[in-house]
Design a binder for these strands. Structure first.
Length: 261
DNA sequence: GCGACAG
DNA sequence: ATCTTGTCGC
């Protein structure tokens, strides 16, 4: 089986509380090493969900990686789908054993190692990675997107379908497409001044009549600011609730899973 | 003790 | 995440 990186293996201890403390300490270290300001080479405006035949000969669109997983019993299928503009240029996957259960706030310890195994199969170097889960919107500001982003030192953003923690500036129900509001740190978020914007709720899609689609919760992973993270995700959407990188990864993970069932 | 909680 | 049929709407 693929070796699990030390970043995701806290020193073993018979006491579960001690193990948990070590994982939380590791996350605080990850948060301290994270950068939440724009620190990437590509031009944000060149990022898109579809190819643009003519116009804007600006700069080459960056390589954007979508990451997701599917599970079968005690195994995880981790995939990375890389696209440039609207074209998929590479898809890789890794099947690994999962030993850690899902615990809110500790997701990276369950999925991190398997995801790195998939990244190890990649032949290219993504300019940006989009994750299915939170980044800075996390109790210790070290969600999956931040943890992997820091580990690989790749610009990253987290896209979650549910809010883990933090408080929205406004109610999020029934909003129009394109709407967004800041998610601010509250007492549940450590290492952050209360009121600090740690992400956004983004209504990436909405129906005209029967509105009932919930918003996306976008947050910086690493080397991306809060506003830019949401701008990028918005640019990566193509008429669906989820941004294209994540949608493709989700679909590919399901395909691979079927072959292992 | 109770409630909340990404995938 | 996963287990699952039909069903409402564009």
């Amino acid at each position: 089986m693929h070796p699990v990186r030390p970043e995701f293996v806290p020193d073993p201890d018979p006491d579960p509380d001690t193990t948990r403390e070590r994982m939380e300490t590791l996350q605080s270290d990850v948060a301290a090493a994270a950068t939440w300001t724009d620190a990437f080479e590509f031009v944000p405006e060149s990022v898109g969900a579809v190819d643009r035949t003519l116009s804007t000969p600006d700069s080459d669109p960056p390589l954007v990686a979508g990451v997701d997983q599917a599970f079968l019993d005690d195994r995880a299928v981790s995939v990375v789908v890389v696209s440039r503009g609207g074209t998929v240029v590479e898809r890789v996957h890794a099947v690994t054993d999962v030993a850690i259960p899902y615990i809110p706030g500790l997701l990276a310890f369950r999925e991190g190692g398997p995801i790195l195994s998939a990244f190890a199969e990649l032949g290219c170097d993504p300019d940006l990675a989009v994750f299915d889960g939170s980044g800075r919107i996390h109790f210790r500001q070290a969600g999956l997107a931040t943890h992997i982003g820091v580990t690989l030192d790749v610009p990253s953003v987290g896209v979650a379908k549910g809010l883990l923690c933090g408080t929205p500036d406004e109610g999020v129900d029934g909003r129009e497409e394109g709407w967004r509001t800041p998610i601010r740190a509250d007492a549940d978020v450590t290492n952050a001044d209360p009121g600090t914007a740690i992400g956004h709720a983004l209504q990436s899609r909405q129906y005209d009549s029967t509105r009932k689609i919930n918003p996306l919760y976008v947050s910086p992973g690493h080397r991306v600011g809060v506003g830019t993270a949401t701008d990028l995700v918005e640019r990566l959407c193509a008429g669906y609730k989820l941004p294209e990188p994540t949608r493709r990864a989700d679909a590919y993970a399901d395909d691979v899973k079927q072959e292992y069932v």
